[in-house]
Design a protein around this nucleic acid. Sequence first.
DNA 1: TATTTAATGCGAATAAGTCGCAATTAAGTA
DNA 2: TACTTAATTGCGACTTATTCGCATTAAATA
Lengths: 124, 124
Amino acid sequence: MKRRNTPAKEAVLSLLSNSKKALSQDAIEKELSININRATIYRVLNRFCDDNIVHKIVAEDGKQYFAICRKCEETNKVQYHFHFRCLSCDSIECLETPVNYLLPNGYKVQNATCVLTGVCNNCS
Amino acid sequence: MKRRNTPAKEAVLSLLSNSKKALSQDAIEKELSININRATIYRVLNRFCDDNIVHKIVAEDGKQYFAICRKCEETNKVQYHFHFRCLSCDSIECLETPVNYLLPNGYKVQNATCVLTGVCNNCS
DNA sequence: TATTTAATGCGAATAAGTCGCAATTAAGTA
DNA sequence: TACTTAATTGCGACTTATTCGCATTAAATA
């Protein structure tokens, strides 16, 4: 299924590219200058995830946040790393800290989600 | 606010005590032999969390899972540790692996949620 | 310019979790 | 043991995040 370039896609991508933080759908919708339907934003984001252009983090608020990760881009593959969600400014940022874990035999990992929650340096 | 012993509370607590896995509200409701209202189950679980009797994990499916953690009990305080969610048997278990991270200056952590997703040894 | 099919908007649907409120009941006290 | 009070429950409605179906629009390419 070939992907097409559309205003919605470009707007979301450029917003994420210029953001150092992971954004939720409603944050994206608010920050966009053009009006894009809620469902469309989700579809655009999920397509980006499928194409490994952005990665999705689910925080302990149960919401999805999306980010283009510099680290992932540099190494050209998705790296599991910690995220920090600030309760004050309600944003999530990718930390440098990589995720390390030991796994009992027979377990296969497909994904790792690690989110620290608290107050970031800007807000404290 | 003093806590009371009720059938609902005891049923949920005994179910969690006998389970090695973290359970979601609907899993708990299904496994209980007595009928307890959905809202009540949530309230019981949240009270347990407030009292540090169970801990809550939010997985990347956005759902809340609740567990009594042996490790936490032994050390008598909540320890951040990795969790493993099996996509096949849809359960979450507490792993031994403790969570270690480096944090930039000025950040304050209140909570850490780390979930690995994949297939557990039973299911693979 | 015409064709094809991916992408969009809209509204409805789903699912998890919470809330208000009246009714119930555990637990302390007379 | 009966009485009191405040914690707990059940119910139904509500919220919020996300998805889905479907008709319509519009990229891309021949």
